[in-house]
Design a protein around this nucleic acid. Structure first.
Lengths: 117, 117
DNA sequence: CATGGCTATCGTCTTATTACGATAAGCTGC
DNA sequence: GCAGCTTATCGTAATAAGACGATAGCCATG
């Protein structure tokens, strides 16, 4: 197990296996609620920036996010929690820090639901 | 000018002319704010339902929306206002009622921004 | 011109969101 | 084991969102 500098094993392009396509419907009451939930999570500038940051650096960054945003550490943590609970982001404990990366399934689901409008 | 039952002249498939494609960028601070704004507007189940309703009936419905949702008329009006201010929906006064329809540009913009993630 | 049906707005209440500092929790390296 | 760094959570305060009833505005019809 090589101690790769800042990249946790379960994040990044390494974990691109097993991407079964999503068969859930993009319409109906359940899909509505799901879309609302996802959209709400994206509905804040800071969270959009965080998402983009994580998408850009395909490898997942840790609390460097705090340095990129003009917000307090606790606020960023809160935003990350929102994104995590919405299933758009995943956090892996990597030693003393936490490594965040986009949850591809969640992002794909969001795109599918918006595309289904 | 035929008095078509409930279809205002500027709504519906009739008004599909002049759809220039959007050249604005899908990244950057401005795009972030725009996406956040649009996503926030979609970030409520009732508003998702309204959007779908308007998309489904390509001709625009009026306050029939109120009948479809388990919400008070004033609440629905509020949600419509949010959607309108986000540029996702357009309202045309059609005699005694108001005719709502999706704003194709806004919806396309949302899809482009989400797709750009 | 008055009546009646739609819709928007206002006022109000309740709840959620956002942001921050301070504090606690967890792992590493010494 | 302790010191130090990183991150999450708590407490708190300000603001925004969501919902409703009541009211006002508007247009067609009688």
């Amino acid at each position: 197990m090589p101690t790769t500098a800042r990249i946790a094993p379960s994040c990044g392009p390494t974990a691109r296996a097993g991407e079964a396509l999503d068969l859930r419907p993009v319409e109906g009451r359940e899909a509505d609620d799901e879309l609302a939930l996802l959209a709400k999570a994206v509905g804040h500038p800071a969270r959009v920036q965080i998402l983009r940051l994580l998408v850009r650096r395909e490898a997942c960054v840790c609390g460097d996010i705090v340095d990129e945003l003009p917000l307090a550490q606790s606020t960023v943590s809160q935003h990350l929690k929102v994104l995590k609970e919405a299933g758009l982001v995943r956090g892996e404990i990597d030693g003393p820090r936490v490594c965040y990366c986009v949850e591809p399934r969640g992002l794909r689901r969001l795109k599918a639901l918006v595309g289904g409008l």
